[in-house]
């Protein structure tokens, strides 16, 4: 981008008084020494002047009394229920309230989920699971105590299965 293009992009903000300090000074000194940019400035000023004239002349002066009467009529008119509902929702679910509502909803869901894991009406059954780990009647039970956060892995032999497995154990020899 040439220096003139850069300056011409800044002409608008400069004429609007939005470029101050070194930036504003750079535009001012360039425009003072460059005929093309000075012409661009002239065109932009004429555009702004015409815009101002067009926008202000096409707007007639409003009479206040009839204007206010119509605003007042709207204020006093009974609005239908669905409009009132929409307005209530908009005011209730405004952005700052939503900012609080989202973490609150997350907390509620987490709370409900953790509550669902608690047994209803009494002590938790800590007996978690029993799995048979080999063909010789040895089982493993996992017990967890939530209070002390202790997990016990309990290896034991099933007395009922013992007899069934003794013969098989004798046939197959020691398992170890």
């Amino acid at each position: 981008m040439s220096p003139c293009e850069t300056i011409q992009e800044s002409l608008g903000p400069w004429l609007d008084g939005e470029l101050r300090g070194a930036d504003g000074e750079a535009v001012r000194s360039h425009v003072a020494s460059c005929a093309d940019c000075a012409a661009a400035r002239g065109r932009l000023e004429k555009l702004q002047l015409t815009l101002g004239t067009v926008l202000s002349t096409e707007a007639p002066q409003l009479k206040f009394a009839p204007f206010w009467r119509e605003v007042e009529r709207r204020i006093e008119a009974k609005r239908p229920w669905h409009e009132q509902l929409i307005e209530w929702c908009q005011s209730t679910l405004s952005a700052p309230r939503l900012a609080w509502a989202v973490p609150a909803a997350i907390m509620l869901v987490l709370g409900l989920l953790s509550f669902a894991k608690w047994p209803v009406g009494g002590q938790a059954d800590n007996y978690a699971s029993v799995e048979s780990i080999d063909a010789h009647g040895r089982n493993v039970a996992l017990l967890r105590d939530d209070k002390t956060k202790t997990t016990i892995i309990w290896l034991y032999q099933n007395p009922e299965g013992e007899n069934e497995n003794v013969e098989e154990a004798a046939k197959s020899g020691p398992a170890f």
Binding site: L55, S56, E58, A59, P60, Q61, L62, F64, F67, W68, E70, V71, E72, R74
Partner: peptide, 30 residues
């Protein structure tokens, strides 16, 4: 009402500039 009287003309002008139609602009301003 005093606030409306202070700003109704300016608000109407801005709305007319955007709407480009007096009747619509008046309706939107009210």
């Amino acid at each position: 009402q005093e606030l409306v009287s202070r700003y109704h003309q300016k608000v109407f002008m801005v709305i007319l500039g955007l709407m480009r139609n007096r009747e619509d602009a008046l309706e939107v301003a009210q």
